[in-house]
């Protein structure tokens, strides 16, 4: 590759920490700043960093294009599915309180978690797909 040694080693060093930070932002989003949108963008940023430093092939080994394309609608499905789950269990659409039989508040916390996962999947998928689309056009 044409990129410099420092860049390649540096990328390898920070890569796990970026992913760790994205997961922290995702799962700690209920207690600190963060959530599905931010975590999704950070995850996509990690793939883009690999793509810039090591070339598109390396990025595609980490995040295969088929998977990325599947993630885009999958996240919306998770989100809407959580809503329909509430509908099936006898409450309104997107009312999560039924997800836990004993404690409605616990169910709503769980619902928030599932919905945020859906957001994470769609946002990271879309942002990575955008990067792939623009880069592949340039070759």
């Amino acid at each position: 590759m044409r990129t410099s040694l420092i860049l390649r080693i540096g990328t390898k060093l920070v890569l796990p920490f970026i992913l760790l930070f994205a997961l922290y932002v995702q799962f700690h989003g209920e207690y600190g700043p963060g959530g599905g949108f931010q975590a999704g963008v950070i995850t996509a940023g990690m793939v883009i960093l690999v793509g810039i430093t090591f070339g598109l092939g390396a990025a595609k080994r980490i995040a295969p294009p088929g998977l990325v394309r599947a993630m885009v609608p999958l996240g919306v499905l998770i989100y809407a599915g959580t809503g329909v789950l509430g509908l099936l269990l006898g409450k309104n659409f997107l009312d999560y309180s039924v997800l836990s039989a004993s404690d409605p508040a616990h169910g709503r916390g769980l619902g928030i978690f599932m919905v945020e996962s859906g957001v994470l999947v769609t946002v990271s998928g879309t942002m990575t797909a955008l990067f792939y689309a623009f880069v592949e056009r340039g070759r």
């Binding site: 989003g29 209920e30 207690y31 600190g32 700043p33 959530g35 809503g83 659409f93 997107l94 999560y96 409605p104 508040a105 616990h106 709503r108 916390g109 619902g111 928030i112 919905v115 945020e116 957001v119």
Partner: peptide, 19 residues
């Protein structure tokens, strides 16, 4: 009380204003 989520932005985003 409602959701056990202290970050109000998250709870409004995903619960109160889920639509």
């Amino acid at each position: 009380k409602d959701t056990h989520v202290p970050n109000v932005v998250t709870s409004v985003l995903a619960d109160y204003r889920g639509y």
